[in-house]
Design a protein around this nucleic acid. Structure first.
Lengths: 120, 120
DNA sequence: ACGTCTATATCACTTAGTGATATATCTACT
DNA sequence: AGTAGATATATCACTAAGTGATATAGACGT
């Protein structure tokens, strides 16, 4: 059984594109800001391009909310400018809730034949 | 073959929640504003509640963009206050593009086991 | 040493969403 | 007929979020 999200977190749903793609990019490992920006362009099939202003203000907001955490660089000799981030437990729960919402919208649309069915 | 979206329309992706749910509500038939508000609450499993301010400003914006059209009431003796809307061709294309984006995000997440698989 | 890419950061501005409130109609009940 | 409550649209003042532009500087190849 999964814990329910607090009202506080639930009020963030639906996630804004910037918040969604930052959390989404971090789901497969810790990353620094610039890498998140690049992955986001790739993950969204170039449909969403996040500029630096959006990225860094979003990262700060997510830190304040406790949805992500900064991780002290463990690596030996990385680029000294980089700041690495990790998705926090609450951030993951929130991302899962958002994905469930998307999934249910897509399923409903599929019943109305607005989206091609699964092929994989 | 589907026509590509113009740059103008593509810049609206990802859709804001308000825009998405209005178009989504209209995909199964013409509706008036208040009905859209109610269906949205239902469609989103109460995860998104759109107040009147958001609804009516969004409807106006969508009319200006040509994504929806107002339909003159053909019915005989309906509630005279109601204004009915229909999704326009471009609005449907845009909604389909957004659903495809969501679908691809959900599929990617499923590979990472962040979303339960299909059961239906 | 130079140019380009990488990387983070902030400013001023625009756009979108929101709580509150207003106004009017419709419907059901007495 | 009166009226209470739900339905329906609309707008205001405010807040939150995103954005283009710009700044600054370290990394990397030639």
């Amino acid at each position: 059984m999964k814990p329910d999200l607090s009202d506080d977190l639930r009020s963030l749903l639906p996630l804004t594109p910037a918040v969604f793609y930052v959390l989404f990019a971090l789901m497969d490992g810790d990353k620094h800001g610039y890498a998140i920006m690049q992955q986001t362009t790739a993950h969204s099939d170039r449909k969403f391009r996040m500029g630096p202003a959006t990225l860094y203000t979003t990262l700060q907001r997510l830190l304040d909310l406790g949805l992500i955490e900064e991780v002290e660089r463990g690596r030996n000799s990385e680029d000294s400018r980089r700041r690495y981030y990790r998705i926090a437990r609450t951030g993951k729960l929130l991302l899962e809730a958002e994905l469930a919402r998307m999934d249910s919208a897509v399923r409903l649309a599929r019943k109305r034949k607005l989206v091609p069915g699964t092929t994989d």
